[in-house]
Design a binder for these strands. Structure first.
Lengths: 206, 206
DNA sequence: TTTACTTTGTAAGAGGCGCTAACATCGCAA
DNA sequence: TTGCGATGTTAGCGCCTCTTACAAAGTAAA
């Protein structure tokens, strides 16, 4: 949105082009086969050029992850219709979590399982992810009034469950069977409802 | 168990040595930094030698995964004391799932997130994993007599939840905080109890 | 025992990768 | 105009996976 303020140097905002190109390449071929060298070739630039803008490969991937996280957050927020009761909204978000992971499997793969050091090296990623968690937590808060501790545990549980369906679904290479995706989305929503209904179990173990 | 039937050739059962060495290297340094070349050097063999026994790097990793899966299965089975009620056994298994992932993070990393093509390329892995699922399913069957469909959904949900806690916990590089691990183990068990208590929600959506 | 065959390892190298240091170029600003 | 900092290139190091051609070691039949 807000780039190309002034026509930059040789290439013309190579930094942005690198991130854009990386997203394209990753979506096209998967994170696992992404290489800085191929990206450079595509942009008509030598393999050393990216290092003027990113300290290393992981830093570029972190920039891609920020993009992915943004799309992820939007996908989740889109599931949350204000009119629905909070439980259904939460279930829909869990489903949306899984659906995003399935439909944008490669971007999802940048967010997780890549071993990016979110805590120390890329705190902006951690923050962005906490925003996503916040969207869920807001929903849960309506369900557990006056029990912030239980709310947190329920939030974690819903997140873990959605993430588990998502991770197991996308662990396999190759294209996904749409029926599998739909089933996983449904199950994640159902499991969320079950967690809500059975949430008293969290109180028992404290 | 059943190797070294006859004294083999030059090295003396290099194939087994490769798998053993790979496990050691992976446990010591993480899957992400494992290389066939370093393993070969360690075994005093040229880098080409492993290709006499494994078509490629992934095939060796699949062999390592079989080992990991065996350890994983044993860790899960150890959680299942016959005397406990099935619900508590299931909760303990979920906790064991997470604890194994945390304590053997690198072996767990070989099982998931490596993109090994379990379905097509390494069906023996898929089978072994289905055994693990079977252990859980047996437990769930006691909880849901006469409802095989609901039992399957509950099994999937418990598996996904445990896997989600495990994956989120081990996504970060570096050593884990034992307190985080204990909390995740506890929460996985609690979430399992919640799923059991709220399992009627699975029936609602069919 | 000799010969032929199979299995296992080596030597050499192609092609890829991430990353670095030294050098060249370009735009801006003093 | 000159000088400087930002950006890109050239060249190269060291690592990787994997392949091909060759050598050695065991096995088994003649």
């Amino acid at each position: 949105m807000s780039k190309t303020r002034t026509k930059p140097y040789h290439h013309g905002d190579l930094k942005a082009a690198l991130v854009d190109g990386a997203v394209e390449l990753i979506v096209a071929r998967g994170v696992r086969h992404f290489s800085l060298a191929e990206l450079s070739r595509r942009l008509g630039v030598t393999v050393a050029a990216p290092y003027r803008h990113f300290a290393n490969r992981d830093e570029l991937l972190a920039a891609v992850a920020v993009r992915a996280l943004q799309a992820f957050g939007e996908a989740l927020a889109a599931q949350s219709t204000e009119t629905d009761p909070p439980g259904e909204r939460l279930a829909a978000m869990a489903g949306g979590y899984v659906r995003f992971a399935a439909e944008q499997a490669d971007l999802f793969g940048v967010l997780f399982g890549l071993g990016l050091d979110k805590k120390k090296r890329h705190p902006e990623l951690r923050e962005a992810y906490e925003d996503v968690e916040g969207t869920m937590a807001a929903c849960v808060a309506e369900l557990c009034p006056g029990d912030p501790d239980g709310a947190e545990q329920l939030t974690d549980a819903v997140e873990a469950t959605a993430h588990g369906y998502a991770a197991l679904l996308t662990d396999q290479p190759g294209p996904l069977d749409p029926a599998d995706v739909d089933r996983a989305v449904e199950q994640a929503a159902s499991a969320t409802r079950a967690l809500i209904d059975g949430r008293a179990a969290f109180r028992r173990s404290r």
